[in-house]
Amino acid sequence: MRDRGSAFLMAPALAWLAGLMVVPCALVLALAFFRRGLYGGIDWTFTLENLALVFDPLYGGILLNSARIAGLVALIAAVAGYAAAFAIVSRPRHWQPVLLFLAVLPFWSNYLIRTYAWIVLLNREGLIVQAARWLGRDGALPQMLYTEGAVIAGLVYAYLPFVILACYAPLSRLPRDLAEASRDLGGSGFTTFRRITLPLTLPGLAVGAVFVFVLSVGNFVTPALLGGGQFQMVGTLVYAQFLTAGDWPFGAALAMVLMAVMMLLLVAQTWVAERGTGGRRDA
């Protein structure tokens, strides 16, 4: 009876997810195996050309470049975010929720607006140029907006709070006496960090880094706004296939590769997390 009630309660939501998530996703993945129609439609003949095209030097290069940028973003965000979370945890207990809240707060403001803030900072009449001019050093400044650096800065900015949050949880849950035990047994502060604190909180850091990578690699807004018109990443490429170039099957193939990379990373991260800490741990 309990299970029947449960099925009854779950049915509408699961049906919604099935109809508007599973089926459309399956459909778009299926599109990857068909030919592009003459006038932007779909020609229903099976082909692997689209997938092959993804790995063509031109598009493969964009794919690799996206991965490189996302990797850099994940690395920078992981280091900065872990340091920030560590700093928050080492403040007195009653301050921590406030600091954490402040660190995560920007995450809740509109993504477009946060990205736009960087345009304001970086553009040719932007604040940084103004500040440099005021200091009399504006001649030394290179172009900042519409560069890869701007895209990386924007992505790190967007996802740093997420990493802080992901790292804070395991760091604050780590029993204080483990670090104390290490000190007691003769470990210096750094040794204790390297051998106890870091390994035990690595899964949280990995979750943060993997998600930042996944969110960055397929990002469309940030490269479009901060990278300028010529800047291409997988996300902008997919966007272009669907909304301007009209090559849906190729766009679908790109999305498929994106999903595959993402799945692979998430599975790997789960696997590492489960092995790294010897499975279950005491609460």
């Binding site: 104390e180 035990a181 007691d184 035990l200 005491d282």
Partner: peptide
């Protein structure tokens, strides 16, 4: 003297065994 430089060791109430 900091704890790591004392020839004194503590057995923690929680044991504080390194889980990894």
């Amino acid at each position: 003297t900091p704890p790591n430089r004392r020839p004194v060791n503590l057995m923690f109430q929680s044991y504080a065994l390194f889980p990894h």
